[in-house]
Every structure is written in structure tokens, then in C-alpha cells.
């Protein structure tokens, strides 16, 4: 067989095989774009926030791991701390209708008010499309995207994979670490961790 023929066959094989390999975005990849409806009714496009750090937070109000971070005020503190520094923070709701954590826009708005939460927006993702794009496994999984649109962190919110409120003080917060290190021009020391929590309640 001629060399060019072998090469051509290789190319065909690779082109056929590559789509099978396309996995959800991981650390170091370009953050997949999405468009979503916020609980306010506005349409939010990730592409509009290029040039800013973006945090994605997977949320399910019935999950005890999420409860740990909201009932302790930890998540709200992080939202306020980082949005004050120009970071864009999207809370993403990927629970399917009928499943734990699914909420309507008004239910989510009531929740945000009641909890004094302060994300830039809460994005409704009942089809799970955004969740699957980022391979979100749990609530509260966290993703950090840099101003160049690259995923620089994906995983747990911190290093205490429990539901205990007393584990919040003293935990190492991976989201804050990633943002601090990236903003200081340093490489993110811990760019990927196991995202602890409840499984995301996707549509089946």
C-alpha cells in the first residue's frame, strides 16, 4: 500500500473515532458556550462574558450538601465576595421537572430572596443541557472559567465532602483558591477535584 493511502485511511479512521471521544469540557478546555433563561426571565449567553472570570455553581435546594453551604451562609458569602471583584457568578439548576431541586423561575426568585443569595443570575436548565456540557455530576459542583474562556477549575467547592455545617470553617475553598491564583497570574494549583455532593437530578 502506498504511504499516502495509509495516511488517508488513518485520517478517515481518526475522523470517525474523534466524535466518540468528545467528552464534556474539562480543565484546560475552552468553556462550551451556552444560552439560558435566567430566573429573572432574561436570556444569558456565556459568550457575552468573555473577558471576565465566570463561576458556575450547580444547585439543588433539597440536597443536604448544598444545604450545608447555604444554611451556613458560605455560598452567599462567596457570591458576594467574588461578584464584588467583577467575577460573574451563575447558579445553574439542572434538575428535571418532577425531580428534587427542580424549581420554576418564581420559586427560584423566592429562594434567592429568602437565602439572601447573590449570584449574577440563576440559570434554569431543566433539560440538563448545560449540566451535560460541563459533565456536572453533583450539586454543589463548581466550575471556574478564566477571561480567555478556558476552564481553569472543575470539582468540589472545598476539601470537606460532608453535610456537616461545622465543616465549613477551616475548609480549603477550591473556588477561591483558583480565582486568587489565576488573578495573581499563577497557575491554579488544584485545577480538578472530585465534585462531592448529591447526584445532579437529570432528565432520564
Amino acid at each position: 500500500m502506498k504511504r499516502s493511502t495509509v495516511y488517508r485511511i488513518l485520517v478517515v479512521v481518526v475522523l470517525c473515532a474523534v466524535p466518540l471521544l468528545i467528552a464534556a469540557a474539562k480543565v484546560g478546555d475552552a468553556a462550551p458556550g451556552f444560552s439560558a433563561t435566567a430566573s429573572t426571565g432574561k436570556t444569558v449567553r456565556l459568550a457575552d462574558y468573555r473577558g471576565k472570570y465566570v463561576v458556575l455553581e450547580w444547585h439543588n435546594n433539597g440536597c443536604p450538601y448544598v444545604g450545608k453551604h447555604y444554611n451556613s451562609g458560605n455560598m452567599q458569602r462567596l457570591q458576594k465576595q467574588w461578584t464584588a471583584q467583577g467575577v460573574v457568578w451563575f447558579t445553574i439548576l439542572s434538575s428535571a421537572p418532577g425531580k428534587q431541586g427542580y424549581v420554576t423561575a418564581s420559586e427560584e426568585n423566592n429562594y434567592l430572596t429568602k437565602m439572601q443569595a447573590a449570584p449574577t443570575a440563576a440559570l434554569l436548565d431543566p433539560t440538563g443541557e448545560i449540566g451535560h456540557l460541563y459533565d456536572a455530576k453533583t450539586s454543589p459542583q463548581m466550575v471556574v472559567i478564566n477571561p480567555q474562556g478556558v476552564v481553569i477549575y472543575s470539582g468540589a467547592i472545598d476539601d470537606r465532602p460532608t453535610t456537616d455545617l461545622q465543616d465549613v470553617p477551616g475548609a480549603t475553598n477550591y473556588v477561591s483558591l483558583a480565582l486568587e491564583q489565576a488573578m495573581a497570574g499563577k497557575p491554579v494549583q488544584t485545577p480538578a477535584t472530585r465534585p462531592y455532593g448529591c447526584s445532579v437530578k437529570y432528565r432520564e
Partner: peptide, 12 residues
């Protein structure tokens, strides 16, 4: 014993 018990949802 601290135990997480789950079905569709989880209860610690």
C-alpha cells in the same frame, strides 16, 4: 455512625 442514605434524593 454518620451515614448518607440515598434513593432519588439523599438524607444524611
Amino acid at each position: 455512625v454518620k451515614v448518607l442514605v440515598c434513593r432519588e434524593m439523599c438524607i444524611p
